[in-house]
Computed example of a mutant assay.
Amino acid sequence: MSADRINRIAVVTGGSRGIGAAVAADLSAAGHRVVLAARDAEALEHAAKALPGPVLTVPLDVTAPGAADELFGRVEAEWGPAEVLVCAAGAGASAKLTETTDELWEAQLALNLTAPFRCLRRALPPMRAAGWGRVVVVASTAAKVGAPYIAAYTAAKHGVLGLVRSAAAELAGSGVTVNAVCPGYVDTPMTDATVAAIVARTGRTEDEARAALARMQPIGRLIRPEEVAAVVRLLLDQEALNGQAVTVDGGGVQS
């Protein structure tokens, strides 16, 4: 991407913290204009102040009806059509399958599958018309393998990987690529919430719970957000990478 032209307009959902914030920082440092979208306006402004380049903040809930139109309409009005989209907004939830409520199920699908779908649907036509665009969806290793107690999250992430692959096939040769990155446990607030859930469910200490998650990566530690951001940049830079789901977990899921 940077070799082609700097100053691209890049939209990052979930850009106020975690992987989204790391991706935004990487893109801004590379010379691109960055749009940060997330629910927490205060957190968005804090993240925006850390970026070295031009930034536009759009506080909204990506699961709300009409949110994608609001987001991309705002970007187009202020800067022009989005050229890069990174869907990093997401969250997990833990429950036994038999205790997964309809509300939990629907919330996981809304955030982790429907919101990316709506963003792709809104962002792709201008990219295709321009003959250039890059989309990366932050999925998870849960998009590739199942695990206990996260049925709704796993189903949503498997679904979003299917969305990525179908979109990539549909857009092949258009100059627009669609890929996914599939991290393991990353040192982010989302993992902090997972640690808290483990503590509440098992009685382990926070250190014990965090160490157990770290051991799930063969490298013996949590993945750093900057490591995921580096893979996102690779997917943005290469036209030959399309329809791919790159795992970033230290070698646990080999595919």
Results as ranks from 00 to 15, higher is better:
A82C: 08
A167V: 09
G173F: 09
D207L: 04
R210M: 07
R128E: 15
A211T: 01
A123T: 14
C119Q: 03
D69Y: 00
P116F: 08
C87G: 00
V23W: 12
A22I: 03
K157Q: 09
L161Q: 08
L104Y: 07
A47W: 02
D187Y: 09
P218Q: 12
N7A: 15
F117D: 01
L51C: 05
A143Q: 06
M190F: 00
L51M: 13
R39D: 11
Y149T: 12
G243R: 08
A68I: 11
A110L: 11
A230L: 10
E76L: 00
V186L: 15
E42I: 07
A50S: 15
G80P: 07
H32A: 02
A88M: 10
E78T: 03
Y185N: 14
A48N: 04
A180I: 10
L60Y: 08
D69E: 15
A3I: 09
G90M: 08
P116R: 03
A214Y: 10
T177N: 07
Q238S: 11
E70P: 02
I219H: 11
E78P: 03
L120R: 02
A240P: 04
A24Q: 12
G203L: 11
E70A: 15
A38K: 07
A156M: 04
A200Q: 12
S255D: 12
W132V: 11
G15F: 02
R165F: 04
G66L: 11
P65H: 00
E99L: 06
A10I: 09
V228W: 10
S94F: 14
T100D: 13
V58P: 13
A200T: 06
A10C: 14
L124F: 01
G18K: 11
H46F: 05
M216C: 00
T191N: 07
P225G: 08
A30I: 01
V181D: 14
V195N: 01
A22Y: 02
I198K: 03
G15N: 06
A29R: 15
V164G: 02
L36A: 11
P81C: 03
N7Q: 13
G173Y: 06
N179L: 05
V135G: 00
E76M: 04
T57C: 14
P225I: 12
T13D: 09
I223R: 00
R118F: 01
A130Q: 10
R201Y: 13
R201S: 14
R233C: 03
G173S: 11
Q108W: 04
P225M: 05
R33N: 06
C119Y: 01
A212I: 02
G92L: 01
A24W: 07
V160M: 02
V228K: 12
A89S: 10
Q238G: 00
P65G: 05
G92I: 01
L97M: 12
A95P: 07
T202K: 14
A245S: 13
M127T: 04
K157H: 11
R233M: 06
G14Q: 08
V186Q: 06
G131N: 04
I223A: 12
A37I: 15
G203K: 14
E70I: 06
R165G: 01
S16V: 02
L113V: 11
A240I: 09
